[in-house]
């Protein structure tokens, strides 16, 4: 079955991103396909490489990056939500004349159309968040 996952909350405050991560891993381990993981609302904050939790805690961003690399996942951060919250890739840095960028490995910034497309093309769209 083809799944897509939506993450609507940022890391650490809510369990949503952890649950989404474990769900995604479980889906993949059962041999299903994950077409896309879409980060919306505060969920875009999962995609900053500047995340630096204490050493004895999980690094939620790196965990997504690693899973993405391992399974060639499409980790998409919503551009409109990202702009509001200061999540920036190289293109956005240039477009908005910012002095830096902070997108994490394996994430990309794109439009809300990617969410709708995931809803259309996936057998199941599973959302995590408040």
């Amino acid at each position: 079955m083809k799944f897509s996952v939506v993450v609507n909350e940022g890391p650490y405050t809510h369990q949503a991103s952890d649950s989404a991560y474990y769900f995604t891993r479980a889906v993949l381990s059962q041999g299903h396909e994950v077409m896309r993981v879409f980060f919306y609302h505060d969920g875009v904050n999962n995609g900053t490489r500047l995340t630096t939790p204490p050493q004895d805690d999980r690094n939620i961003t790196n965990r997504w990056s690693d899973l993405g690399k391992e399974h060639n996942l499409d980790l998409v951060v919503c551009v409109a939500a990202a702009q509001r919250r200061g999540i920036v890739d190289e293109d956005e840095q240039k477009r908005n004349s910012k002095d830096t960028n902070n997108i994490a490995d394996g994430f990309r910034i794109s439009g809300l159309g990617q969410l709708i497309e995931a809803g259309i093309q996936s057998d199941r769209l599973v959302a995590f968040g408040d």
Binding site: Y40, H41, A80, A81, G111, L112, G113, L115, I116, E117, I120
Partner: peptide
């Protein structure tokens, strides 16, 4: 507000 944005963008599909 962000929910409404999804509905508007979705119209193109």
């Amino acid at each position: 507000q962000e929910g409404l944005e999804v509905a508007l963008i979705g119209a193109a599909f």
